[in-house]
């Protein structure tokens, strides 16, 4: 993709190559600064959840669902997944991210290829079960929409459908292509760290 894009730009406007790459890098830096603030807020909040035992309560509530979706996940992983899912559900994708990174780390068995549990979490997070798409609603308001919420029902059905299809497909695929120990477990003698 990058090769195709850069080679096209060389013909149209060579000076735009570096310019657009720098624009992208700048956007990454701006986003990172913003993320430090957002993650700082949420990681702090989640630490209080964790230490007061409230995260255990959320994990218990979502427990049956999580144990059905993630076979053999550790208790720590279940806690992180339940926080990740509840944050995603209320439309706080950036609050869900630090929990998602932690959950993937916890589910990782150290192999080169992802195991079924990691795939399940990625699919659930990327098919976004979102109750309220607040970004779209505010952008529609800015553009003077007369019926801001007119798309919500269709949107809700689309997001629920995509998550269900994703989960079902992962369940099917994991039956057809089960985890091979050689792929998902680290090779013996290679566990240096």
């Amino acid at each position: 993709m990058l090769i195709a894009s850069v080679s096209t730009l060389i013909f149209i406007d060579p000076s735009a190559v570096l310019e657009s790459m720098l624009a992208g890098s700048n956007a990454a830096l701006r986003l990172s600064l913003e993320l430090v603030a957002v993650y700082g807020l949420w990681l702090g909040f989640f630490a209080i959840l964790e230490k007061t035992g409230a995260s255990k309560l959320i994990a218990k509530l979502l427990g049956p669902l999580i144990r059905f979706l993630f076979k053999g996940a550790s208790l720590e992983a279940q806690k992180l997944i339940s926080l990740n899912m509840s944050a995603n559900l209320i439309g706080l994708g950036s609050a869900a991210t630090p929990m998602g990174i932690g959950a993937i780390k916890e589910l990782d068995t150290g192999g080169k290829k992802a195991n079924t549990n990691m795939i399940m979490l990625i699919v659930i997070s990327t098919t976004s079960l979102q109750l309220l798409p607040s970004t779209v609603i505010s952008l529609r308001t800015q553009h003077n929409s007369q019926a801001v919420t007119s798309f919500l029902l269709a949107c809700f059905i689309a997001t629920v459908l995509s998550t269900i299809i994703g989960i079902v497909l992962v369940k099917i695929m994991s039956k057809i292509f089960p985890d091979k120990p050689a792929d998902v477990l680290p090779a013996k003698g290679l566990m240096i760290d």
Partner: peptide, 10 residues
Amino acid sequence: LMAVEVFRVS
């Protein structure tokens, strides 16, 4: 973000 920007601008 760098790749996406080039992808769009090009």
